[in-house]
Design a protein around this nucleic acid. Structure first.
Lengths: 246, 246
DNA sequence: CGGGCATTTGAAGCTGATCAAAATCAGTGG
DNA sequence: CCACTGATTTTGATCAGCTTCAAATGCCCG
């Protein structure tokens, strides 16, 4: 059992434990999941339409994105995955996906067989519930994002993205919400918030000039977090961290 | 056991069976869920932020919507629920929601205790998986919708909405994709597709004038479905009807 | 040092929002 | 049955935000 695999699985377990209670036995079942780790260059497609995947992949390091490809070629990113995220957990119950999951920066991921995940879910009801809940949190996040794209303007969307990623990074111990690594281009940022790279650039300039935050070479530095949160209408319940056991 | 309740539960079971296999015993466990049916006027809030609900509600008849309320008061609808849908199944594992579920037209719903749902999920792994999968389908649909809002223009969004609802209505036997009831105002349509009612109205006029479809008094009539699908870039895999058992 | 990608800036155009008002419709009570 | 009320639909006019197109600059890496 490789070190990277153990680390990734325990990060995943930590994530599950944020919202669910699992016994010692159940925890070790999660930690005992099989998997093999892989080093991937950036822009590598992990899953794509037509590929019926036998694996779900867990992020050990780096940044991945799930995106939806329009017929015209325009991409829309629907989720960003950071270390500890079971990327596209959805795919474990819906194996033939209609979207793409790809690395954004060079990353290391752990492939976990779908079958193994379903097996421990079948054996331990509490794990099944935890995975179901994790999928629900994913869905709730997507719902929030729909609200963002449907009703909010460019400033608000961009601000929200940085607020959200800051908290998530902080939560997994990768920097603080005031300063963290987000290894993506402005083009990619645009794909997340539904804007062109040009417009994202102008928004970033405005944030820089008003000393709210800067984004340079994949590093975010927030100078006025209070204002950033305000622009984003960001509330901390957003990420639904509390523990939801009945 | 009321007639309406049996009917709603069997519609829900049919929905689950579209994508999952359940044994006779498991099926009857689903059909045996407790619940009590309620008649609701339109614009009645079934769930809202701050209300920790002990029930999940199953649509027996009518139309419900889950929506996200912005601080400015703007609403964004994130899902529409039609008969047979377990409205906000997400809430069964995430009880304190940050969104609202409300009737759009007068409806009858069946309240099912969260605890009962979790209990049969704990007892029957296959049911747990089916519910998990249903949540995943929900999430996948939300992902698609993000793509729609992020990248597509007004025409495409509106067309897509009618394509999707047509198929869903057809699937549950409520009219055909060419002609079905969709009891909502243009204002509400706008809340789904992220546009103002005024603009929705203009798009509808264009569709009417080019003889693609009409929307009048809550009834949709599609005259040129081929073209409507084309505008929407609608593909039938969209609703993920196939059966996804390992 | 040079090539390719990412960022930055400018100018022009279009889509959809906003504001305002008229027309239509549904439901209510006289 | 009709007049009244409030909601919804429809249309027009104007405006702002974002896109598009184009070009210049900066930057990393071979």
């Amino acid at each position: 059992m490789n070190e990277a695999i153990r680390g990734a699985l325990s990060a995943f377990l930590r994530r599950l434990l944020l919202r669910s209670v699992l016994s010692i036995e159940e925890r070790s079942a999660v930690l005992g999941l099989p998997g093999n780790s892989m080093q991937l260059r950036s822009h590598y497609d992990v899953a794509f339409p037509g590929r019926k995947s036998e694996f779900v992949c867990l992020v050990a390091e780096g940044l991945l994105a799930r995106s939806d490809l329009g017929a015209n070629g325009a991409r829309q990113i629907t989720s960003l995955y950071i270390p500890g995220d079971m990327c596209d957990l959805i795919a474990s119950v819906l194996p033939d996906v209609s979207w793409t999951v790809a690395t954004v920066s060079s990353s290391t991921v752990v492939e976990v067989p779908r079958a193994a995940l379903l097996a421990i879910a079948a054996e331990y009801p509490a794990i099944a519930q935890a995975l179901w809940r994790d999928t629900a949190v994913d869905a709730a996040g997507l719902g929030k994002w729909i609200g963002l794209l449907g009703r909010r303007d460019a400033r608000e969307r961009v601000a929200h993205l940085f607020c959200e990623m800051g908290r998530r990074m902080e939560q997994i111990g990768a920097g603080s919400r005031w300063s963290f690594q987000l290894p993506m281009t402005q083009e990619k940022l645009g794909e997340v918030v539904g804007l062109t790279a040009v417009h994202v650039n102008r928004i970033l300039r405005a944030f820089r000039e008003t000393e709210i935050m800067t984004f340079k070479a994949g590093r975010v530095k927030v100078t006025n977090g209070r204002l950033l949160d305000e622009i984003a209408e960001f509330s901390s319940e957003y990420l639904m961290i509390p523990n939801y056991n009945l």
